[in-house]
């Protein structure tokens, strides 16, 4: 019972600001609404007993990516144009496509007979994730660190002011 209440509150905290993100005409307000949406996803992770992923989600998504988005909005003056039109000509076909896609996805997902899993999640997912990263998924670990290096250098080069 308590879990259902917590789930409904967190789902509302995730979805209602997400509507503001995609429909608001004021970009700074859209970026501000992104943050409670990400924190709602963090709550859903905690409810799913994935505490390490939840901590990383707050640290990286809400603490770094949202800050980066706010920085770029402030540097490109996107937040001042309230009279500027913010939706393009694809608004209604886009809405129809997204709604149709969501309906198809929900229909398929709800009707699939998911097998009930056996076993339990390890008590400390941090240690389990660390061990998995260094034994079974070491290739993904090394490749993602390479991608981080390449994107770091790439972002620096692209955004540099030409002297």
């Amino acid at each position: 019972m308590g879990e259902l209440v917590a789930f409904l509150v967190l789902a509302a905290l995730t979805l209602v600001p997400a509507v503001v993100v995609v429909t608001s005409r004021n970009l700074v307000r859209a970026a501000m609404a992104l943050i409670p949406s990400l924190l709602g996803v963090t709550g859903l992770f905690v409810l799913l007993q994935a505490e390490f992923v939840a901590g990383i989600q707050v640290l990286i998504y809400a603490g770094a990516i949202a800050v980066l988005i706010l920085f770029v909005i402030m540097l490109t003056e996107g937040g001042t144009g309230l009279a500027v039109r913010q939706v393009n000509t694809q608004r209604w076909p886009g809405l129809a496509a997204a709604a149709g896609f969501v309906a198809a996805l929900v229909a398929v997902l709800v009707r699939t007979p998911w097998p009930a899993g056996s076993g339990t999640l390890p008590a400390g997912t941090t240690a389990a994730v660390g061990e998995a990263f260094l034994t079974e998924f070491v290739l993904a670990f090394e490749v993602s660190s390479l991608v981080l290096l390449v994107s770091l250098v790439g972002a620096l080069v692209i955004a540099r002011r030409e002297p």
Binding site: T14, L15, A18, V19, V21, V22, V41, R85, Q86, V87, N88, Q90, R91, P93, G94, L95, A97, A98, A99, F101, V102, L105
Partner: peptide
Amino acid sequence: LFGLGLYGVLSRR
């Protein structure tokens, strides 16, 4: 959530 993100990608300038 995915549908909302999809609408945002398709319809914003």
